[in-house]
Design a protein around this nucleic acid. Sequence first.
RNA 1: GCUGGUGUGGCGCAAUCCGGUAGCGCAACCGACUUGUAAUCGGUAGGUUCCCAGUUCGAAUCUGGGCACCAGCUCCA
Length: 621
Amino acid sequence: MNDPRRKDAVAYLLPDGSQVDLARPPHGESRVLLQKDDLGRQVLRHSTAHVLAQAVLSLWPNAKYAGGPPIQDGFYYDFDIGRPFTPEDIEMIEQKMADIVQQDQPFTREEVSLDQAAEIFKDQPYKLEWIREMDPEAGEQGVSGDRVSLYRNADKFVDLCRGPHLPSTGRIRSFKLTRSSGAYWRGDENRPMLQRIYGTAWESPKALQEYLWRLEEASKRDHRKLGPEMDLFHFPPEIGSGLAVFHPRGGLIRKIMEDYSKAEHEKAGYEFVWTPHLTKSTLLEISGHLDWYKDSMYPPMELEGATYYPKPMNCPMHILIYKSRTRSYRELPLRLFEFGTVYRFERSGVLHGLTRVRGITQDDAHIFCTPDQLQDELAGLLQFVLDVLTAFGLTEFEAELATRPEKYVGEPADWDVATEALRRALVTAGIPFKVAEGEGAFYAPKIDVHIKDALNRRWQLSTLQVDFQLPNRFGMEYIAEDGTRRLPHMIHRALFGSVERFFAILLEHYAGAFPTWLAPDQVTAIPISDRHHPYAHRVAQTLRDAGIRVIVDDSDQTLGNRVRKAQTSRVPYQLVVGDKEEEAGTLSVKPRGGTERRGVALDDFLSEICEEVRSRRISPH
RNA sequence: GCUGGUGUGGCGCAAUCCGGUAGCGCAACCGACUUGUAAUCGGUAGGUUCCCAGUUCGAAUCUGGGCACCAGCUCCA
């Protein structure tokens, strides 16, 4: 069941063209036909969640049930049965659900008063909590005033619910319970932990199979698996959770990413700075970060009467560079860039491979400008972000405009100016975006740029923030044309977000098969027999002289064995050379995932691959 | 941090429930084969069963603590 207080109610279009508000179905209409669209799926999953709760209640009559909405790809429902669910429990529940579906029980809707609802759910403390909080005046949940809607199926199960539902449980075609785990009641870590069961439901067995395939594919290309397997990086337990080491091949990919990024930043007018990894507490007191984030920072070191912290962000240090001398309006915008590694003590449970680490390298820059320059700077910056991400083969963008949170610093009027500047930049760039109310940082509103990867998963990458607070706190100024001292505006921005996270996303996006320009090994040369070793090495040297990364597999193995290894290693090109090639000075060229071409002149291949690398083409051919 | 789960040669797994000499495949190494496009054959070596305590005649297995990882919750400057 949905949290009745949800405000994101959506309308659902019935087959006859009339609209149904999911929060308030019209009188007499409690049924929606199953359709293969998002809203149809919501209704399906919502109904399946009811069946899940019904199954749990029938197996554990004393179970307390809380709520269970449809979610991306499925649904969940929270319960309290006094202990966690075991895998055997889940199997049993799934079987019970299948029975309920088989029985084709009709869903029916009714309306009762809040008092009647409280009586019906008198043994259900979680339901009662919701009922008590419903405001009869607001009429949010019920049909009107103090009335609230319930859904039953076959008099065997009743739930507080806004609906709508499928006509009957028999309409549920394909579902599967996927996992269970603890979840705090109402998402509050100070409240009891319930046991949540997750499931998925689809309009056809085929759609379910496709979904399960996607899950399997995601797990196959999981960077935590591919990374060590491809010898790119690992997390040594001796160093500690969330602290990765990059191996030569991973380090090379990282270097290529960073080199490209630096070259683009240089072209875009950035200047490169470097700042230390430790700072006295003084700096963080001025910036305010110590007040806000002390709990998620590495603890302080006391030395010679001073207190030092590993830096949790780079911004204040860049500000000190700005402040090192008087700045004129002629110098602005001043753009300071650094690959800055920062340390944050993320809680142990949130760490996740390279996507959530404790040692984070940001492609971090701070732009200081005059108020007049702000708008142009933002528009140019947003385009720069899209251009750089596009070069890495990420081409589907969406953005979020995150506005002032409940806890913030500064003047609301400044926040409004900054937010509006960001909004206009989004409109200029023409990126689809939605507003995330209250999701901004404590000191600034921001734009978050999301990309979609090859499996259609969304990742948040870049962030752009307009900050009036830190310049204030640090007393920054510039000398304006009229000779007066003015407060500069400050833009925080990162494109990759974190190099580690971006690395992981690329690894998963490409399933390890990096475009040639990023691939640590670009070519494998395979001599057919011992007598072709010299030719293979000559070919390799010619390519290397042109900057191509080549390995020669002259190991004592059969040709088939070495070809297989080259294929499974995801190297973009394999070159097989034997008598024919050596005599003619040619190659047999087989691109990763393509078909071989024999008799290719070495020079031709060389210019092809060099052009491919130069243009950063995504797939080899 | 919280709830639950997992931890066995480099990798993937078996033996764990019910305590009794830790096994298999791949990879590695050695040898033979000299190959025309996804796994040649034969042999060898490799283990503090995550760590520390405890129970026991005996612990990979049971108990306690720690570390690391996994799923989710909460958090994410």
